[in-house]
């Protein structure tokens, strides 16, 4: 067993030397370990030349490499999450994954709100153009400090969301020429013709747009928090992102005060992420809804307009943390709707 430690995150172009002074681990006999080191050293000498070669002078032994300082942790905007993982690490990639309605976007907005309160500039690279500005405003985000990159397949000229009154939802179909709707049977509706509305083909997929925009923003620098919102990208598509891309992203933010946060359904960055947080709907809330308790309980049989969606209970589990070796833990926190008060 080799006694030298090879870090994959070492700066490129900085060669390692497997020197004789490296410490041995507990499972290897010291004599045997020394022989291993000598054998490796002979092998290296054979390939690079004798130790008297002046090229060796420029090589730093691995044992003398500086210890990487612990990254600065900043608040995520949710105290419960900060207690779980210590905050968001600067200069690192953090993954937050979970299914729909698991609170990923709420955590994202809380982090953005916290960052803009620190007078930092933030960027959201939105793969599915799904950010709701009103939710962002309710989360306390300074919208002047937020750069929103709206990726997606729709052409900006066809996208009605930027101007008022042009959405197919709001425009009168009779006026706009949209397909009209008919009632099929007892409240079931469908649209006539069954054809999807035609959208413009884009030159690139949203995922490619996200990756290229991220590359450009990381190269530009100066942002405190950059978020890759891949939450609506199917996992089978998101997994096509090469691991080298994640390595590149991680190298780009290393030793910089930028936090790179990826929101997704399943973890896709592998060992490149320093923190991996798994979110899900809280089990009790899920159980209550699954048992249909609201309708079975005669005491709580109320009309639907007497209900109010006020909060979402979230289970958060710290799956992986490269920053400390704490065991996997989980917590529960709640997010409140803007109208809950």
């Amino acid at each position: 067993m080799s006694t030298a430690v090879v870090s994959t995150s070492a700066a490129p172009g900085r060669p390692f030397l497997f020197d004789n002074e490296s410490e041995t681990d507990g499972h290897c006999h010291p004599e045997r370990s020394g022989k291993c080191v000598k054998r490796i050293s002979r092998g290296v000498e054979g390939s690079l030349g004798p130790l008297t070669d002046p090229r060796w002078a420029s090589i730093t032994p691995a044992s003398r490499l500086e210890i990487r300082p612990a990254p600065e942790m900043v608040p995520s905007g949710i105290p419960a999450l900060d207690a779980l993982m210590g905050g968001l690490p600067r200069g690192c990639l953090t993954e937050i994954c979970g299914p729909a309605s698991s609170g990923r976007t709420s955590v994202m907005l809380a982090a953005l709100g916290s960052a803009t309160r620190r007078d930092e500039y933030c960027a959201v690279i939105d793969a599915s153009n799904s950010l709701d500005p009103h939710s962002a405003d309710a989360a306390g985000i300074d919208l002047d400090r937020l750069l929103w990159v709206r990726c997606g397949e729709n052409s900006p000229r066809r996208d009605p969301s930027t101007s008022l009154g042009r959405t197919p939802l709001l425009a009168n179909p009779a006026r706009s020429g949209a397909p009209s709707f008919i009632c099929l049977s007892q409240g079931t509706v469908d649209f006539e013709g069954g054809k999807k509305p035609k959208t413009l083909r884009s030159s690139e997929s949203p995922l490619e747009q996200v990756l290229r925009a991220t590359d450009l923003l990381l190269e530009s620098g100066g942002f405190g928090l950059i978020i890759l919102d891949l939450a609506d990208i199917p996992p089978q598509s998101a997994r096509r992102i090469p691991l080298t891309t994640w390595f590149r992203f991680r190298r780009a933010i290393e030793h910089k005060p930028t936090i790179l946060l990826a929101i997704e359904q399943l973890p896709i960055a592998g060992s490149c992420s320093s923190l991996l947080l798994q979110l899900g709907v809280h089990s009790s809330q899920s159980a209550v809804l699954s048992s249909n308790q609201f309708f079975k309980d005669p005491q709580d049989w109320r009309p639907s307009h007497a209900h109010l969606f006020t909060e979402l209970k979230i289970d958060a589990e710290l799956i992986r943390s490269r920053l400390d070796r704490k065991p996997a833990r989980s917590i529960t926190f709640a997010t409140k709707t803007a109208w809950a008060g």
Binding site: T105, S106, L109, S130, D132, D159, P160, T335
Partner: peptide, 13 residues
């Protein structure tokens, strides 16, 4: 303060 429950919009709906 508690985090705000966010809405992820489908564009177009």
């Amino acid at each position: 303060q508690a985090a705000v429950t966010a809405l992820r919009r489908f564009r177009p709906p």
